[in-house]
Design a binder for these strands. Structure first.
Lengths: 140, 140, 140, 140
DNA sequence: TTTT
DNA sequence: TTTT
């Protein structure tokens, strides 16, 4: 018990969010996010990009679908979750995702028709212990 | 460019750190860390544990080897890195690890013969752009 | 717009939380929190303690009043807020506080009769845009 | 001991950094940073801005002086420090500052002639236990 | 004013 | 595989 599992990312979306709808109408958005880091090595500037699998649930997924697009710069706060799945060949594999808990769009003024911070408590779609939306945080 | 990739964890070590030495004498420590979370579902308390693969390089690995043991509660700050590798059967797989940048032991008094915060800039063993140790942060 | 204002602290309470009740029955808890840092200077170990003014609103204040006491080790997440006030002599002064958004008790087993993470959206008592409680996070 | 004191901010500089030089040639940069937050209250969008006093020491101050200007959007990581001072009238006052440990410029492409993350261990100017610069992180 |  |  008593753990903290927190991820803070600032990066650009590699693709538009992809939204799926589960039984019960629960929405799930996912997209890749790139965080790049520069450093000097032997006098040359090296840029290293790390890709993260971002997952958003329910109301946060809906907001993401509406306001996030490929290329946008966002601040994302969330937690790590590793889950297993079977690939097409039936081989068990693992993937680590960042389950987003809130996000803020950063960047150009033109990106800010909407400037509210988006926040949503979200969890696995098959649990309903926290399915409400932090409506006050939504921009409409 | 311009990215932030930060992980903050507080959890317990699932095992003692395992230390390996690469060519050049570079040390790498790794261990699993559990972060647990409790919540109420339908009136029952559910505990959910997430396991993280922690990796520490060089001086930080040495400090970890000396001061961290299975069961200890630690605060860890680091970044996410996903890398691919081939399993024994030659199948390409991916794993996501937390490359620790510093840690602080939390918890019981008996855990605190040493109480300095440990911090070390570290990177891939095959790169040497940042191989020094933040010696002032080391407890000896 | 588009800002992030986040504070992450792990430290010990210097006093029991002090709870006040505003008009409307809104509860506000506050207490000092010590975060200490050790480092070596000229071969001697120096310990430096920083004191933070923690403020919790509404449901989070109620949970704090019940579960936090002087000496306990807690993880606190919140945001900075600087406000002005007049001292007894009528002189305008400023104070910077950490408005907590959630906390987790860390530390000894004896501290863990209750082990849920406490979280509450909270704001100034004179605003009511976010006055609900994240009830699912509360331990009762 | 065993504390964590961490601040994460994303905001705009309210002024150009002001650089002072202490005895020994130690440089100190300081500037105000605004973090704004939007929320809906009674259907109206409210924007609330918080101002932070940012302080940078030594090499980090030098990088700030070179690359940060009024209006720029930056990610700043640091720690809180409250110190007392006497105002012109000899009255003792307190101020809380964010001692930056690293920063990253965010925002428009045009802001990124230089895109390295800046990082520097820094402390009070009158202590020399950590006076070196994380040179590898510097952009020259 | 905490803790080790 | 941790911890409470």
């Amino acid at each position: 018990m008593s753990g903290i599992n927190k991820v803070i990312l600032v990066g650009h979306l590699g693709k538009d969010p992809e939204v799926r709808y589960l039984e019960g109408g629960v929405s799930v958005a996912s997209f890749p996010l790139a965080t790049s880091e520069s450093f000097n090595k032997d006098g040359r500037k090296i840029e290293q990009t790390e890709w993260h699998n971002i997952v958003m649930w329910r109301g946060l997924a809906d907001v993401a679908a509406k306001y996030l697009q490929k290329g946008k710069l966002v601040y994302i706060e969330g937690k790590l979750r590793t889950r297993s799945f079977e690939d097409k060949a039936g081989v068990k594999k693992y993937t680590t995702e960042v389950i987003a808990e809130n996000f803020t769009i950063l960047g150009r003024k033109s990106d800010f028709e909407n400037e509210t911070r988006h926040s949503l408590k979200s969890e696995d779609a098959d649990s309903d212990y926290d399915s409400r939306t932090d409506a006050d945080d939504l921009p409409f």
